[in-house]
Design a protein around this nucleic acid. Structure first.
Lengths: 176, 176
DNA sequence: TGGCAATAGTCGCATGGGTAATGATAACCT
DNA sequence: AGGTTATCATTACCCATGCGACTATTGCCA
């Protein structure tokens, strides 16, 4: 997060707990936290910018993600949707509730497995889906306007490595 | 978000709406969206990883951010806290509610201005605050383990430029 | 001084996200 | 076949966040 400018005077404290010794000099504590804050900030600002641009359509970014997956994979179940979005089934179910209530999609019972709801976009949803894709691309282009093509590629590659590492850390059986 | 692997067969559609002409060749639509998804994913994974590590302390990442600001700036008002965290006053107020209920901080009425609550950490909060700072640093170090020092610096610098740009776009009076 | 604009905080309503428990249904396996 | 296990969806209860309306104060200024 943002402006906690000023002093890092933290009262010196005990001589830093037993962090594993490092070969290379480390940046300051605050610098190490800085990148974490930055990533959160940028994600939040992107979501806010997107929501601002699609509000007039009566949708949010998260809802667009659902429509987008359903456009590419019509007839998936709620669990499959949850897995694609990397959210819990309960979360996906509530999102489906709201989208169904607003007539963006329908639940259809699977004829062969009565546990399953199969999801289908309505015609109106198909229409706005494409528009929102265009908005998303335009937003990314604007957000990355200060980076040249090489930098964008480098940023993407680095973020992919960070994501890989975080996923490994989330794996049950990773040393905390 | 993650695995929308497979086909981008989207049915060809109309010949792409009037995007502004570009001098440099653009990466594909999906590549452009990709970096947006990546940033959201990494932010979410970092929050989840942090929450997992501090859950035993009975706190969340957002609550740690409050404690951290209060540690550095004891006696600030709720509005000042909201501004530092870049959240709405209502959000900050509810967070203060919960933290006060769990005895991590106290509200003290300002003697000179009866509108203002001044916030102070309790002793227990001061204690865990430091521990959580250490956890945050360790988390960042692990998450960035696949990047060398130069790459981390480059990543930080690029993300700062993206944030700057997004803040400019959020400014009232920016061409959508 | 008296009135009105600005500020601090709260509350209600909404979305979005997680965990845990539960009920219904399939699948599996002895 | 029958019992056990796994899966799908829903529900209830949390936290976090935004927006807008509202109250209580302060401050400012004519």
């Amino acid at each position: 997060m943002g402006n906690d400018n000023l002093d890092n005077k933290r009262p010196a404290g005990p001589p830093s707990p037993p962090l594993p010794p490092r070969s290379r000099p480390l940046p300051s504590s605050d610098d190490r936290r800085h990148i974490g804050f930055l990533i959160s900030d940028v994600a939040r600002l992107m979501r806010a910018a997107f929501d601002r641009r699609v509000r007039r359509l009566g949708l949010t970014r998260s809802q667009w993600l659902v429509l987008s997956r359903l456009h590419r994979h019509p007839g998936i179940s709620q669990s499959e949707l949850a897995e694609m979005l990397e959210v819990e089934r309960a979360t996906a179910g509530r999102m489906v509730d709201r989208l169904e209530r607003s007539n963006w999609l329908v639940r259809q019972p699977d004829p062969a497995d009565r546990r399953i709801n199969r999801l289908y976009l309505t015609a109106e949803a198909e229409a706005v889906q494409a528009e929102m894709g265009t908005i998303a691309e335009g937003l990314i282009d604007e957000a990355m306007a200060l980076l040249d093509a090489g930098e964008r590629a480098a940023l993407t590659a680095m973020m992919e490595r960070v994501k890989t590492q975080l996923q490994a850390m989330a794996q049950p059986g990773a040393a905390p």
